[in-house]
Amino acid sequence: MINIRDIKKALGWEYKVTKPEFSLDKEIYSQFKHFRLPLILLQLIMIIGTMGYMIIDDFTLLDALFQTGITFTTVGFGEVKEISQPGRLFTITLIIFGFLIFTLSITTVIQVLARGKFLDLYKERNMLYKIARLRNHFVIFNHNEYSIQLAEQFKRNHIPFIIVDPRDDIEQIAHKYNYPYFIKEETYTEKAFLKTHLSSAKGVISLSKNISDSITIIASVRLYEKELGRKNPYLIICNAESQKDIERLKKLGANKVVAPPELMAKRVSAMAIRPDMENVLEEFLYKKDTPIDMEEIYIKDDSWFIDQEIKDAHLRDKLKVSIIGITEANGNFLQTPKSSTKVRKGCKLLVVGNQAGIARAKLLVNDTIRPDYIDSMNKKDKFYV
């Protein structure tokens, strides 16, 4: 028998909804408690009205219920059948209480909407569902002038990110600077980690001007990382103002620490000393949709490429990717290695090429099995020689 679900899956029509790790359902449901009294009074007046018509004018259950409904809502349909004088007095009383309950209900709705909490919770819930679909994103803690510039770079390079900041006007800030995802929460709390779907993130970035905030974030993220039992540690990037702070943050667990004054000084120095090289970097490395990219490739322990020469992979011929540097396991950097240089265990390759070629190179050099095309290309090289 043909299964419709299997057909949808084969055609790619099936969409899997990922639920957020932090649920706001309890907070949203708590907003409905304000409607309890009006609903109870509504049910009570319907019961009293139905029983009253049945007792006073001997209505059937359905006629009494219908008469109560049209009387309570004051739609003006008239009487289902002739009502006695006591029944009309009862109807007037029913109309008055119905009007009071209706007024109470409208007032309650206006109060709930005027407070804005219900709408804010609903908006945040929608945001959490959007964030739950992200994978390998970055969580940026704290909004400031650094996050504004960083967000622009991430958007140009199509890197997903979330801004986390506890300030009350973060929604207005997000709209102003076009942050696609944002969360109003204290940066170092577990609630912030759950709301940002940190378990699926690639890393976190702390852009606080206060080093104590960065220290707290690093410690909290590393502890959360251990609780999850992640195989791949988070990439943690922080900013600092002095060399002393840089060393402290690295010792605590930050992978990279950027000093804005030092970084600016290096860029200005490069512009002054080698202006042409700086123009090349601006054109190819920092530009949107650049044809050339530069990246480090870590060689895994079970890679076939270990103890092989660089030329054995034929990266330049096959993928238009060149190895321009090797960082060895002991930290030594080998600049512009020769084609006969052997790749050792635990090293990192600094490669240059287009993004698609580098992505394929990562898979190729870290495969456990030697690719089949290598032997055929080696034969061609021997033939031409």
Rank of each mutant, 00 (worst) to 15 (best):
Thr216Tyr: 09
Asp372Asn: 14
Thr108Arg: 00
Met271Asp: 01
Asn330Lys: 12
Val321Lys: 06
Leu100Thr: 01
Pro291His: 07
Glu283Tyr: 00
Ile310Ala: 12
Leu37Glu: 00
Glu152Tyr: 02
Asp317Glu: 15
Met51Gln: 03
Lys311Val: 14
Leu349Glu: 01
Ser23Asn: 12
Ala174Met: 07
Asn232Pro: 02
Val80Phe: 08
His314Leu: 05
Asn279Asp: 03
Asp6Ser: 15
Val80Arg: 02
Phe77Leu: 15
Gln111Met: 11
Leu349Lys: 04
Glu309Ile: 10
Ile170Arg: 06
Gln31Cys: 10
Pro38Lys: 00
Phe305Leu: 12
Gln335Asp: 15
Gly229Val: 06
Lys338Cys: 08
Ile70Cys: 13
Ala272Ser: 09
Asn3Pro: 01
Asp120Arg: 14
Lys288Gly: 02
Pro371Gly: 09
Met264Asp: 10
Ile2Arg: 09
Lys348Pro: 05
Ser147Met: 08
Cys238Thr: 05
Lys81Thr: 14
Leu319Pro: 07
Val221Asn: 08
Glu225Tyr: 08
Asp276Ala: 07
Val385Trp: 07
Leu194Ser: 07
Glu227Ile: 12
Ile140Arg: 01
Tyr129Trp: 11
His314Thr: 04
Gln111Thr: 11
Tyr224Trp: 06
Leu315Pro: 06
Lys380Gly: 00
Val280Met: 07
Lys155Ser: 09
Asp302His: 12
Ile162Arg: 00
Asp293Val: 15
Phe72Ser: 00
Thr74Cys: 01
Met271Trp: 02
Arg370His: 05
Ser105Leu: 13
Leu364Ala: 02
Leu65Gln: 05
Glu282Asn: 11
Phe35Glu: 00
Ile374Tyr: 08
Glu309Pro: 04
Glu225Trp: 07
Ala114Gln: 10
Met264Asn: 13
Lys256Leu: 15
Lys8Met: 12
Gly87Tyr: 03
Glu247Trp: 05
Glu171Trp: 14
Asp63Asn: 11
Val221Trp: 09
Ala132Lys: 05
Ala192Lys: 03
Leu363Ala: 10
Gly69Asn: 03
Pro20Gln: 04
Phe66Gly: 01
Leu119Gly: 07
Thr73Ala: 15
Lys26Phe: 08
His158Ile: 10
Lys338Thr: 13
Gln335Pro: 08
Arg125Gly: 02
Asp120Ser: 13
Ile45Ser: 00
Leu252Gly: 00
Tyr122Ala: 06
Met54Asn: 08
Thr93Ile: 08
Ser242Gly: 02
Ser269Gly: 07
Leu104Ser: 01
Thr327Phe: 06
Ile101Asp: 00
Phe90Trp: 02
Tyr224Ser: 03
Leu94Ala: 05
Phe102Arg: 09
Leu100Asn: 04
Val268Lys: 08
Gln153Arg: 09
Ile173Pro: 03
Ile70Asn: 13
Ala151Val: 05
Lys380His: 06
Lys320Ile: 04
Lys202Tyr: 13
Glu21His: 12
Ile95Asp: 05
Phe102Lys: 06
Thr187Gly: 05
Lys256Cys: 08
Glu225Ile: 09
Thr336Glu: 10
Lys81Ser: 11
Asp57Lys: 01
Glu145Ala: 15
Asn239Lys: 09
Lys209Gly: 12
Trp304Lys: 03
Leu252Trp: 05
Phe193Glu: 07
Gly49Arg: 00
Leu134Arg: 10
Lys123Cys: 06
Ile211Ser: 13
